[in-house]
Design a protein around this nucleic acid. Structure first.
Length: 782
DNA sequence: CAGTGAGCGAGCTTCCGCTTGACTT
């Protein structure tokens, strides 16, 4: 007979807590929610908004175990997190496990330390049903939005699409940023920079300065340089003022994802996988949190470590305030469990992420950095404009000794360590060089994963546990693609005044090159515009924040959750009906391009069953319309009639080779050459319309060569067995199936005998079939 | 993991937020 059963959300937490509580306590985990709305059904009564719950199949075993353990226990302690979702988990457990109020206790703690847990045990309370109802309202609202809106898209745009309170707004952010970029007009200006020396001929000391104004045209810049030719440069003013910099708060999920992206080049999903492993091995606290709070234990330990490593003057204990909207602060900030461990064992990824977390936590408890910023104003003859030189000296590095927060991208970094030589007011400077550089205003940057998470947190959309999955969902639905973009060459002019000559140079620079940036697809854009037109309330960036406000009212007991639902539903549902009944001659997102000059039929582009297509002729015509898929780099927003008509010119016959036709086709992976049942992809840079017979044959021959090189060995006895060299090293191909070979045999793959090959095939055929691929949005690897 | 190359159709698809699991000998 077990005296006490404690149920928490996470198994790693259960393990830790069990150690603190001693033999009278058994600690189990619910692994998150144990019950949810039915997976495939709407599951909500639209009169009463009562939800229909079910225990998902994969949870039944666990629930049965919890049930039997609960039956055996004198007291059941529900210790899920202290937030809306956690409260609901406790309530579902109470209901499903048939617990009795008299021997069930609800406890909460924010940090996993022995004193915190013992204190929690001393102060149990009841389940807060208002908070539970707030969660049910949240769940029901999300289901209503998702399951009512998605079918509208299936009917109006394309099957299997989805919409939701979070994902649709995320796509909107990306679509709108893309439009900003498209509409951006880069205004040019001339930026003036100068290099001075204190004395003639002194080349060792340089003072770099920038003019406090820019010029719109080359003529104005030239005019200014002419003035400088004979001007006197005098130090008009020197000011020195102290500056302080304070360390950043400890990590939350969002800031960890951003910093790991900047400093370690991790994707958001990667960061979460590595953090999960660190958490499970007891190295760090919980990794899905919106709190910047640190336990007293951690602050104490940090102080000790900082004192030992760097000395007392580097210590400054601080507690941080959470700024982010809608934060629920059920956990601590993400920090090392043991601050005295500056390094850990583990994979390189684990060690690097841990290092980042350790440094950020330590820095957050360190002294401010003290800097001294010097500004020198340099006058130019009788001109109004002035040159400004700045220098910065670090007087006391403080927390910067350990950790420096990375800058928001595309923000120009100033040279922080730049020092200015000692100078005096009134001193005359000698000009060494003055340059006018043509600059173009920068277009706004596309989002990457990290900057998107930053924006979502700012808007209070999504939760720490969902940032990574949301990013993956919008890509799976093909609303958004992550891609690299090559920059464009940009020509610019530099005018330079050196000695007494003004020289003009033309230079080129690659601008706008991007890696891993998110941009919308045609589907994303069409769906966004459609939802924005018919459901502007849902698409409003403030929608989630307003919902949160109402949920808070429910949690505080000043509003009834079913009333909140009814108010929402009465506004929302008629819009769904209305939208479904809109009759239109044109499909959503369709764009007409004009008439095909050869047949006189209309040509248009739209989102088809398989994505963006061009179509000649309409469906109600007696003749069936013709379809052609748009190429990857084309968009229904920008494609021209000519480009669309070109798509119908495939397959294009180029001539014969060895008795077989050589044709150019357009497939789902891009344009290809087809010859005697062999396919060769046409490289991205080449125009499939312009490709000549000779070029096509060349590509075919190259592919043949690569093919023969790939075949390491074939056997006359059994032509179905081949040894091939693939992307992951040599492997065996037999009857269309591929078999990997053991490391030792890979070295001499081309010398394998048929018997050896067959035994490899045999040994792998005996192994059980590969696990079926799950449709998980992101999977973790061991 | 291992190199892909239709055709515009029957039935199915879908939300957000908690949390990780794992067929045998």
């Amino acid at each position: 007979m077990q005296k006490n059963l404690v149920i928490v959300e996470s198994p790693a937490k259960a393990k830790t807590i069990e150690k603190f509580l001693g033999n009278d306590f058994k600690v189990l985990s619910s692994y998150g929610h144990i019950r949810d709305l039915k997976k495939k059904e709407f599951s909500i009564d639209t009169e009463s908004f009562v939800p229909k719950y079910e225990i998902p199949a994969e949870k039944t075993k666990l629930v049965n175990e919890l049930k039997s353990q609960a039956k055996k226990a004198d007291t059941v302690w529900l210790a899920s997190d202290e937030d809306r979702e956690g409260e609901a988990i406790s309530w579902h457990l109470f209901e499903v496990l048939n617990l009795k109020a008299e021997n069930t206790k609800r406890i909460v703690f924010h940090e996993i330390t022995k004193p915190a847990i013992l204190e929690a045990i001393e102060n149990p309370r009841d389940i807060d049903l208002n908070l539970v109802n707030a969660q049910q309202a949240r769940r029901v609202l999300d289901r209503i939005v998702g399951f009512k809106l998605s079918p509208v898209l299936w009917k109006k745009v394309k099957p299997a699409l989805s919409a939701g309170r979070v994902q649709s707004v995320v796509v909107r952010l990306i679509v709108e940023r893309e439009r900003e970029i498209q509409n951006f007009k880069g205004e040019e200006s001339y930026r003036i920079t100068a290099v001075f020396t204190p004395q003639e001929g002194d080349t060792s000391t340089e003072i770099k300065a920038e003019l406090n104004q820019r010029f719109k045209t080359k003529e104005e810049a030239m005019e200014f340089l002419e003035v400088c030719r004979n001007s006197e440069f005098r130090i008009q003013e020197i000011t020195t003022r102290p500056q302080k910099r304070v360390p950043a708060a400890p990590f939350t999920t969002s800031t960890l994802q951003q910093e790991a992206a900047h400093k370690l080049n991790f994707t958001v999903a990667q960061t979460m996988m590595v953090a999960q492993r660190l958490y499970e091995s007891g190295r760090i606290t919980y990794m899905r949190t919106d709190s910047v709070n640190l336990s007293g234990l951690c602050i104490g330990a940090s102080t000790k470590v900082i004192t030992e490593l760097m000395g007392e003057k580097y210590v400054k204990s601080r507690q941080y305030q959470t700024k982010s909207k809608g934060a629920q602060e059920a956990h601590e900030a993400i920090r090392p469990t043991y601050m005295d461990q500056a390094e850990i064992e583990g994979t390189p990824q684990e060690r690097r992420l841990y290092d980042l977390i350790w440094k950020r936590t330590i820095a957050s408890q360190m002294a401010d950095a003290e800097l001294e910023k010097t500004t020198i104003v340099i006058s130019i003859g009788g001109q109004n404009a002035q040159f400004i030189a700045t220098g910065q000296v670090v007087k006391f590095e403080g927390f910067l000794k350990v950790y420096r927060e990375s800058y928001e991208e595309d923000q120009e970094q100033e040279d922080e360590s730049r020092m200015l030589p000692p100078m005096q007011q009134g001193q005359i400077l000698v000009r060494k060089e003055i340059m006018a550089t043509q600059r173009f205003a920068q277009r706004p940057p596309r989002y990457n994963e990290a900057s998107l998470v930053h924006k979502l947190e700012e808007l209070g959309i999504g939760r720490p546990s969902t940032y990574a999955t949301t990013i993956s969902t919008i890509q799976q639905r093909e609303y958004v693609v992550k891609s690299d973009k090559n920059g464009e060459e940009c020509n610019y002019t530099i005018l330079s005044l050196k000695n007494d000559e003004i020289e003009e140079q033309n230079k080129t620079l690659i601008v706008g090159a991007e890696r891993g940036k998110l941009s919308p697809t045609d589907t994303g854009t069409v769906v966004n515009d459609f939802l924005l037109q018919f459901f502007p309330a849902i698409m409003d960036y403030k929608f989630t924040a307003e919902v949160e406000k109402k949920l808070d009212d429910v949690a505080e007991g000043v509003a009834e959750w079913s009333t909140v639902m009814k108010d929402f539903y009465d506004d929302f549902e008629p819009l769904v009906e209305k939208t479904l009944n809109v009759k239109s001659e044109h499909k959503v997102g369709e764009r007409s391009l004009g008439l095909d000059p050869t047949c006189g039929k209309p040509v248009y582009v739209k989102i088809g069953r398989f994505g963006p297509v061009a179509q000649i002729g309409s469906a109600d015509d007696t003749e069936k319309p013709r379809f052609a898929q748009l190429r990857k780099e084309q968009s229904i927003e920008t494609i021209t009639l000519e480009e669309a008509l070109d798509l119908f010119k495939f397959p294009r016959n180029l001539g014969e080779l060895e008795g077989h036709e050589v044709t150019i086709g357009a497939g789902r992976f891009g344009p290809y050459i087809l010859h005697n049942k062999k396919y060769v992809s046409i490289p991205a840079g080449q125009d499939p319309m312009a490709i000549t017979y000779e070029e096509a044959v060349n590509l075919l021959m190259e592919k043949r060569q690569a093919e023969t090189k790939r075949h390491l060995k074939t056997f006359e006895e059994d032509p179905e067995v081949e040894v091939l060299d693939g992307r992951y090293g040599p492997y065996i191909c037999y009857k269309g199936e591929n078999y990997r070979m053991p490391k030792a045999q890979q070295e001499k793959a081309s010398e394998l005998t048929l018997e050896e090959c067959m035994s490899i095939i045999q040994s792998q055929n005996n192994k059980p079939a590969k696990a079926t691929k799950t449709k998980r949005t992101y999977t973790r690897k061991k």
